[in-house]
Design a protein around this nucleic acid. Sequence first.
DNA 1: AATAAATTTGTAATGAATACAATATTATAA
DNA 2: TTATAATATTGTATTCATTACAAATTTATT
Lengths: 136, 136
Amino acid sequence: MDKTALQILEQHSIRPSVQRIEVVSYLYHNRIHPTADEIFNALNGTIPTLSKTTIYNILKLLEDGGVVKHINIDEKNVRYELIIGEHAHFRCDNCSRIFDIPAPTSKHNLPEGFTIRESDTYYQGICPECSKKPIV
Amino acid sequence: MDKTALQILEQHSIRPSVQRIEVVSYLYHNRIHPTADEIFNALNGTIPTLSKTTIYNILKLLEDGGVVKHINIDEKNVRYELIIGEHAHFRCDNCSRIFDIPAPTSKHNLPEGFTIRESDTYYQGICPECSKKPIV
DNA sequence: AATAAATTTGTAATGAATACAATATTATAA
DNA sequence: TTATAATATTGTATTCATTACAAATTTATT
């Protein structure tokens, strides 16, 4: 049982359960911005009775509770990550992996009247590993 | 028949057709970042035989040809816009409309080895109109 | 006009996400 | 503890955007 995951849930006043702890633990230890499906497949081994609906339920709960954030960089599926310090996302055109990248230092040019709640920066290009090998 | 839309297609070496001209024309005159479904519904009146598959086909063709770009700010549907000058996108939390906003002046903090092909900035918050009226 | 190529269309399939009701688990009251 | 209420999980069915694919139509070429 993951102590850190339990703490994260408690800090956000979300009642822990085996399933919730496992989801948070998975996101904590696998910073790969997984889809709901990937999380389900990863946890189905340890929790054989797991249902995919539960994953969706928990992700919604965690998002409402401010524990996770979804990422729209991939047009197929929604991806999720634990909310950590501010950063940007980089998706490699070649291997499709998503990397956490330091956020740019930006001066926003917002017209009069707009109020920003959140700002996200998405990069696309080639990651260091794929730069070294010939593009498939 | 929209002369401008025809020109845009010709500039990108895409053979014109009634359907293609109408899609480009719609995107040119309606800067609302529509979904494929919205485009279909808007054009189905003028082209009664129109098929939704055609809209998807054309959007893919236009995207490959560098005429349009898709936007992932909305987790439900993919949205489209004509490629114009660089700008950021702002989605209003209240009315869900997407606004074109001047791009921020950014100094990117890319780690060694990453190469950027494209960078997108997405804002979320409250638009001027919704700031004035009480939030629903 | 005949034939080939390109485009559009309709239908069926896919697959992520949601709705919902049933079951199981946990907390609370007696 | 036992009974009851509240919460959480699960399975199934549904929705809906998108894609696959083949037939029909339109446009270009010989």
